[in-house]
């Protein structure tokens, strides 16, 4: 589904190279996790895939089902099925959460040439999905993420994911700032979306998220490269021993 080949990325405004040849292949229905020390390039990888400004791709490619992601505007990547759950969801004063969700859902449908959802149908679907994530009517009415707690913001990200039904979901440190109960709730939301046609890339510092969202493949990223790939046991190894041994091994 997602094919990343030899991806090199630097900051647009400075000579700072962040990704130095990332190779990653995620098949349909698979869950991959990326772990790695701070500054290894994990979040940059997610931003570059989603199309955030400020980065320059100097080499390599990234495709979603063969479509060149890097050539598209962010909104077209989203319509093509890519979704990034932000580490720090953005507050948008003055834009109601419900308006935001409906605008996003219908914009994607329009881009794909599908009919827009009616107000009634939309409301029905959003209420149902919000309920399973314990998002109440008040949170749907309030401006996007404004005054939301850390846990509410992350649940709101998962609600957006559930509404948009992407094929390729990237979760950037979705566990950061969550207590144990909130992590469980968010993970259940993610697991409910797992299916044969939907893949996940879970970026995290900690193994404990992977107790809830069980990965098929775990990658270790350091200094802008994937230095080791293995099964779920690799995450346990990091949890027990830290990154030092893996980094030394890679040298």
């Amino acid at each position: 589904m997602l094919e990343i080949k030899n991806l090199h990325v630097k900051l647009e405004e400075e000579d700072k190279v962040i990704l130095r040849g990332v190779d990653l292949s995620i098949g349909a229905g698979e869950v991959h996790a990326i772990m790695g020390p701070n500054g290894s390039g994990k979040s940059t990888l997610s931003y570059v895939l989603a199309g955030r400004e400020g980065y320059a791709v100097t080499d390599g490619s990234a495709t979603l089902d063969g479509a060149d992601m890097l050539a598209m505007e962010p909104e077209n990547r989203a319509a093509a099925g890519l979704f990034l759950a932000f580490q720090y969801p953005v507050e948008i004063p003055g834009v109601g959460n419900m308006t935001f969700l409906r605008t996003a859902v219908n914009a994607q449908r329009k881009t794909r040439g599908e009919p827009e959802l009616s107000a009634g149908d939309f409301l029905k679907i959003v209420r149902e999905k919000a309920k399973t994530l314990k998002i109440d009517a008040d949170m749907l009415k309030r401006p996007v993420n404004v005054g939301f707690s850390g846990g509410e913001k992350k649940r709101n990200e998962i609600l957006q994911m559930a509404m948009l039904e992407p094929r390729m979901c990237i979760l950037d440190e979705t566990d950061s700032g969550l207590d144990v109960d909130a992590m469980k709730l968010v993970s259940e939301g993610v697991n409910a979306l797992r299916s044969e046609g939907r893949s996940f890339l879970v970026i995290t510092h900690y193994q404990r998220l992977l107790d809830h969202i069980k990965p098929d493949v775990v990658h270790i990223m350091a200094a802008g490269r994937i230095i080791k790939t293995g099964g779920p046991e690799l995450a346990l190894e990091v949890e027990n021993n830290g990154y030092a041994d893996l980094l030394a091994e890679a040298q």
């Binding site: 989603a50 199309g51 955030r52 400004e53 505007e73 962010p74 909104e75 990547r77 989203a78 319509a79 979704f83 990034l84 932000f86 969801p89 953005v90 507050e91 948008i92 003055g94 834009v95 308006t99 935001f100 605008t103 996003a104 859902v105 914009a107 994607q108 881009t111 957006q160 948009l164």
Partner: peptide, 19 residues
């Protein structure tokens, strides 16, 4: 905020109008 809206599939000009 503009990027956040775009990343959800909202075209840039629509996102700008919303903001």
């Amino acid at each position: 905020a503009l990027f956040y809206l775009q990343s959800r599939g909202v075209p840039r000009r629509v996102a700008q109008s919303l903001l």
